[in-house]
Amino acid sequence: MESTIKQQILEAEETLRQAMIRSDVEALNELISSELLFTDFLGQLVTKQQDLDAHASGAIKIDDIALTELQVLPVQETVAVVSVRVYITGSYNGNPASGNFRFTRVWSRSPQGTWHIIAGHCGTIA
């Protein structure tokens, strides 16, 4: 069971990565819980709608997300925690914004069997 959950989360993480690069708001909407609690690298709480709006408006433009580390910790049959180190290239509000970051995400599986991000945190890596 643990290996199945890990595989499902790895697939969800790749779907998320691709959706972020394409600013695919529809896919992001499916992956992110409406109850999302996400703290960005500035320590600000970001809602699902704020994240979707930033992608839809073009404020966030991601050219690439290169993974250098990814760990999945299944907690229960319906919860998993991910720690991932990434190098992101892109822009924010038209200004270049690239760097090394570590994300922690909590995924929860719905009664329908789909995985959604319910919480997350991002930090910069010096």
Rank of each mutant, 00 (worst) to 15 (best):
R17H: 04
I125E: 03
T89M: 13
T47R: 10
S3W: 08
A56S: 12
W115Y: 05
Q44T: 06
R17S: 03
S98R: 10
C122G: 07
V86T: 01
H55C: 06
W115K: 04
R109D: 03
S110Q: 13
G120A: 07
D53A: 04
L73D: 08
R102I: 05
A19P: 02
S23Q: 06
C122F: 00
L70G: 06
I118C: 02
I88C: 08
S34Q: 11
T124F: 07
G94R: 05
M1G: 15
S34W: 03
I21Y: 10
L28W: 02
C122V: 04
Q76R: 14
D51G: 10
S23I: 07
G113A: 13
H116P: 00
W107S: 06
N29D: 15
H121D: 03
E2R: 15
G113V: 06
G99Q: 04
K61W: 11
A97M: 14
I117W: 00
D51T: 11
G58N: 10
R109H: 05
V72H: 00
Q44A: 09
I125S: 02
F41M: 05
E2A: 14
E26W: 05
Q76C: 11
R109P: 03
L67W: 08
T114K: 11
A126K: 13
G99D: 03
L16C: 03
I60Y: 15
D63V: 13
Y87S: 04
E69R: 09
V81G: 01
V86I: 01
G113L: 10
T39N: 05
T89P: 08
S91T: 09
Q7D: 13
T15A: 12
E13S: 11
G120M: 05
T15Q: 12
L31R: 03
N93S: 12
E11C: 08
V84K: 07
A19E: 02
L67G: 04
V46P: 07
L67F: 12
Q112A: 15
R85L: 01
I21V: 15
A56M: 07
D51R: 10
L67C: 11
A27W: 02
Q49H: 03
F38K: 04
L37D: 01
D51H: 14
S23P: 08
E77Y: 13
I117F: 01
F38R: 03
Q44L: 06
G120Y: 01
I60E: 10
Q44H: 10
R22Q: 14
T78A: 08
G113I: 08
T104Q: 00
A12F: 07
L10Q: 14
S83M: 14
V106F: 00
Y87H: 12
Q71N: 15
Q44K: 12
L45H: 10
T89H: 12
P96A: 09
V79H: 08
P74K: 02
P74Y: 02
R85P: 01
F38S: 06
R102H: 05
G123A: 08
G90Y: 13
K61L: 14
V84D: 04
K61V: 14
I88N: 04
A97C: 11
